[in-house]
């Protein structure tokens, strides 16, 4: 755990010197920047001029400039994918979004005054749900003197996003078998977006545990 933490604190810039062992590209290739907004942002900094001399990898298949693209949603699709069947995963997530939208529109139709407050955009709902269920700390087992203590340690941003999405999916997969994943996932996301439901409870439980175990926090540095 600590080792992975140390590796995370490496300087991360666009020009990443560390790549996986067997990559089809040489190490000095950098990731593609396919979002027009990002490119515009870069132009204002000095990095842009450096980029004109660097070779760039090809853009991936899931990235595009289309209206349906969102990084978080893409990640979610990846986590739902099983056995390489991304088509099915995307279909499931789309159905889930549809479910969410229908529920929200129904709610909107029931109270016409709340049209401005109720969010019906499924992507927004998903983002909000993930934000609400992101943990700040997590517990690790650290062995000191033969005893394994549960020590609270901070969670990196990437990992917190991963945990939030994983919990959402786990909660969705837990319920009854007759109901399909899209509907279950839709309900989980809606609950989490409103700060209720099992995922947020799980996060709060974790935080409470960390709070109660804060006496062990110094074991991080022994």
């Amino acid at each position: 755990m600590l080792r992975s933490l140390c590796s995370r604190l490496e300087p991360q810039s666009l020009i990443c010197a560390v790549t996986r062992g067997m990559s089809a590209y040489s190490p000095h290739y950098i990731e593609a920047i396919f979002s027009k907004k990002k490119q515009l942002n870069l132009k204002e900094t000095d990095e842009y001029i450096k980029l004109s001399h660097l070779p760039i990898k090809a853009a991936k298949n899931d990235d595009s400039e289309s209206i349906f693209y969102n990084e978080l949603v893409n990640k979610m699709v990846n986590y739902i994918t099983k056995g390489g069947n991304k088509k099915l995963a995307r279909e499931l997530l789309t159905k889930s979004f549809e479910c969410m939208k229908r529920v929200q529109i129904e709610r909107m139709n029931l109270n016409p005054e709340s049209k401005d407050t109720i969010i019906a955009d499924p992507e927004q709902l998903l983002i909000k749900a993930i934000e609400n269920s992101r943990p700040l700390l997590q517990l690790t087992a650290i062995k000191r003197g033969g005893v394994k203590y549960q020590v609270p340690i901070p969670v990196t941003e990437k990992r917190s996003y991963f945990l939030a999405m994983k919990w959402l999916l786990e909660a969705a997969r837990e319920k009854e078998r007759k109901v399909h994943l899209p509907e279950k996932l839709a309900w989980e996301v809606l609950d989490a977006a409103y700060n209720q439901g099992r995922v947020v409870k799980r996060k709060n439980d974790l935080h409470r545990q960390c709070e109660s175990n804060r006496a062990y926090a110094h074991y991080r540095w022994s």
Binding site: L9, K38, E71, E157
Partner: peptide
């Protein structure tokens, strides 16, 4: 606070 990676900035 851990340094923001590119992706997290994107999120």
């Amino acid at each position: 606070l851990p340094r923001l990676t590119n992706m997290c900035v994107a999120y």
